[in-house]
Computed example of a mutant assay.
Amino acid sequence: MQKDSKPDIFIISTNNWNGFWFQRQEFACRFAQEGYRVFYINKIPQRIPSFKSLIRFIKTKIQNDTIKNDIPKNVIVLTPFFLPPLFIFKVINYVFALLFVYSIKSKFKIKNLFFITYQPSYIVLHMISQLKPDKIIYVNTHNYNSDPTCPKILFQSEQILVSLSHVLLADSLYNQKRLEKCNPSIPVGRAMPGVNISHFLRSYRGDEIERKKTIYFFGDIGKHLDIELYNKAAEEFKVYLIGIINNEIAHLISSKITILPPVSPSNLPDILRGADILTIWYKKSDYVDGILPAKFFECLATQKPLFISGLNEALLYSDAVYNIDGSYIHFKEIIRNLENLETIEKREKRIRYAKEADWSVRYNQFKSNIGIC
């Protein structure tokens, strides 16, 4: 494809540019490096608002704003204003979408547009109707069916989006099956989380299994976390949680647990050097069934022992991780035998899975899926 024929890339994200690093920012950067012009749209509302969610939104924004991610050449980051996608706001949101798209068209000559959206609200449908993209790609990374904070109209919008899309992708097997039920006539591909493997390799020290004193988790500290497991671990180990705490569970966290603020993607591997054990301990639920967190492959790339719980999507990698299935007793049994269980072969499997998930591999798979050579 010649440079002057490259399509514009429009990405509707579920997270802001600043803050934790996800597939959305990574792919935007890689498209830009290859000469594509990328419009990156910061997170727009998709949930039912509440006082608690408003407090969390403000708190998250303040903390995420402390993590400034560089914006490369060819990436244009935009932050439109919309109200939550409730039925009563449909008309006013249509007007906001009209003004937003008009502002873009008045500044930029849009050409051969590839519209990639990670959320399915009617606000997105408004933008599609006005931008008239050449190709619509929907990447499902959220189990909306099991999220009570999502308005019913969002499910209707998702059905319409699925019917309009030229390409359907999902991050997890669970979400892949969700989309297949929505539109059996279109094959659903995968757009799995990835990792900058060389970045996280520097977290490994080599003496983790001999020390086995510190337990780390990084990411959203919310209701999906099995706080009870972490509290039990804090009685015998040094436990560190890195991220933003959901106010609804703050009072449940043991005072023996150390909370660290979120850090930039470039600094995270250095922080993780202090970890002997990495964990992703979630509570089993219909919602969690659809999750394969981005941090999973980042943890694998550190080579450190990784303990999971409640993550059905990660069971495919059971030969490289330890599944404690909600049992602290099982965790202690594995820890006692860790020097025998933690073989070179097990560590090599982590590296192999991480290499398969390297962003360069994921990006090339994504380009192939959406029809860019």
Rank of each mutant, 00 (worst) to 15 (best):
P187T: 08
Q365A: 13
S121E: 03
A32D: 02
R273S: 12
I116E: 00
V91M: 12
Q25C: 11
K332P: 05
G35Q: 12
I244W: 01
V361S: 06
Y287N: 04
I308E: 03
R347A: 14
I291C: 05
N267R: 11
F331L: 09
L54F: 15
P45F: 00
D226Q: 02
I351Y: 12
F39Y: 09
C299Y: 06
S103I: 13
L300Y: 08
F218D: 07
Y328G: 06
Y174Q: 13
I370A: 10
M192V: 06
S203Y: 00
E348F: 08
A28I: 00
L99S: 11
K43N: 01
L83D: 05
E235Q: 02
L83R: 03
Y287L: 09
L278K: 00
E298G: 08
P187M: 12
K90R: 05
K105R: 15
K152D: 08
G274F: 06
L161K: 08
Q23T: 15
I44R: 07
R273L: 01
K304T: 04
L86Y: 04
K152A: 06
H251D: 11
L99N: 10
K367P: 02
T14M: 13
A354R: 09
Y118F: 15
R190W: 12
M1P: 01
G371L: 08
P148I: 12
K283M: 10
L241R: 03
S266Q: 10
S50V: 09
I88V: 14
P187C: 05
I71P: 05
A354G: 09
S309H: 10
